[in-house]
Amino acid sequence: MILVLTHINTIFLSLSIFQPASSQADHIATLTNYFIVAAAFILLVVTGLLIYVILRFKAKPGDAEPRQVRRNKKVEAVMIGVPFLMVAGFFIYTINVMQEVHPPAGNQVPDVIVTGHQWWWEASYPGTGAVTANEIHLPVHKKVLLQFSSSDVIHDWWVPELGPKMDMMPGRKTHLWLTINEPGVYEGACSEFCGEQHAWMRIRVVAQRQDEYERWLQQKSQPAQEPQHPLALKGEAIFNLATCGNCHTIRGTAAQGQSGPDLTHFASRTEMLAGMMPTTEDNLRDWLTDPQQVKPGAHMPRFIFEQDSINALVAYISGLK
């Protein structure tokens, strides 16, 4: 029994919201722990009473009718009083934590603007020109402000280890504060049903030390590298010819489309299609051959390319580091 309990305990501690990695998540985790204790207490009281009642009052043959008690004012007072006190306590605590975790943003310029799309995330860093998708880099030990909106339906930001989720509403702006404690990679996912590929709209937050973060930001603000290899050069030509630039941006080229992810530094992201698969040339090739086969419902249209053209495109895009 104890063994089972310890096992369950280890699992729980490994669970994400009990592994807070930001000060916001810390606050929530503490509150959650108190709540669990209180809830466990109530559940214990109810089950305990129930078991006692079952054992003690189970009918035996020949039982007379029990005493017909209708009410008991003292018990009724306790019945209302105790829950009321518990509720009041949690309410005050709730208000405190809310103020810690989610103060208003005021007019502060956000550090990152995240826009939800069906089914990927766009992250732009105001004042730097850096734009990326799905893998969002953030500095540690700094209280950063994220601003959210959506270009189509409601999405929802949730990275459990980093704390609260927040909806991304079309036509509205919402925000979130994060003070990440430790460098690392934190996994999250869209948490509001947003259509066919809701399942593959995952987020990776890469938390870095301030200097690394700034280096990253600096690098990602640059326009795309000029392709060197002839195959890649051919790929660039096809990219332009096939109107890929109507939807995608590659900074430093003519491609300035807004509806698909920014590809300027595509190959530096470890995963593609919002966490669906690692960024490899093979996966990229499959994707370009028939997007609907790889991620049904995705808004990328199918272009009928020759095998050569696909290879050229793959060479070009996988060179965008």
């Binding site: 929530i28 605590y93 609260p164 948490s191």
Partner: peptide, 12 residues
């Protein structure tokens, strides 16, 4: 009803 817990766990 405890808002911060809701922020973590709603829609999961």
């Amino acid at each position: 009803a405890i808002v911060p817990i809701d922020w973590q766990l709603t829609d999961t």
